[in-house]
Amino acid sequence: MENKLIISPSPHIHGGDSISKNMYGVLIALVPVFLVSLYYFGLGALIVTAVSVLSCVLFEYLIQRFVLKKEPSVGDGSAILTGVLLAFNLPSNLPVWIIIIGSLAAIGIGKMSFGGLGNNIFNPALAGRVFLLISFPAQMTTWPLPGKLPMDYIDSVTGATTLSMINEGVARLPSFADMLLGNMGGSLGEVSAAALLLGFAYLLVRRIITWHIPVAIIVTVFALTGIMYLIDPLSYADPVVHLLSGGLLLGAIFMATDYVTSPMSRDGMIVYGVGIGLLTSVIRLFGSYPEGVSFAILIMNALTPIINTYFKPKHFGGR
């Protein structure tokens, strides 16, 4: 016998896709968002993002190495992505120690306590963010105002976000152009609709995600807030304002589409997206919190298993 022939079941070729390719793909899609936040929030954006990414990667490594006692897999990029997404959901003047606590909550509670990547029920970055929002409501809801490459961090000038203005009934909102570009107060990654949509386009072209979830969310929010606006334009904001402000686009494009915590079939994705849109609109229009995307996504995360049970992929030849 010349040499040992390798035997394996078919298929004998692989498409070359990998977990890390998908994770780094999402990171590339987030680059424009990061650049915009650097421009408006300057040093603060850089510090928050760097601290969040580093502590997420470190916690993932430590937990895998010493608690779960298995080969650490920080190279696959999922911890980096969690770190970036967490940072993008935080105000840019958040103290370092709070960010580290948030990272620990995201990786430790949101991800590793379920068994690591693939087993978590909730989006880790959102779990971290909501943990912080409940624990440190004051710090989490004072947002610095945008500047031009500002070099201040903790002591930056703060102000309200568009949504909290609406909630409190402030009449003068930022212009659509400012909202599109991101020239308004808010979390790091949520301000610029244009940059987020650019990322969305990239994700679709690379086939990292499908259009179903983001479109379902956006359409639902637009429709519901639109109806309320038509009923009473004085008490409710323009639906376009709802789309362009707050974490809606960031949530719809980057958080709700998290592979692990979203449904698998096309129908399920639509149902999940509509659910998030519905909950977001309800919280925004009638709730006491100005923003509801994080809660909406987490609630729908919890419903994902049941959606998977009832919304199966379309079977060849029908049932």
């Binding site: 692989h14 977990i19 897999s73 979203s262 698998m264 199966k312 079977h315 060849f316």
Partner: peptide
């Protein structure tokens, strides 16, 4: 030899790409 070996297996990340490509509409 290089073409023959499979790549290491990771946890399922539930990306549903297998669901999208299955020509019989299975999961």
């Amino acid at each position: 030899k290089e073409e023959s070996l499979r790549k290491p297996v990771h946890n399922c990340i539930r990306c549903a790409k297998c669901v999208q490509v299955c020509p019989m509409g299975l999961n």
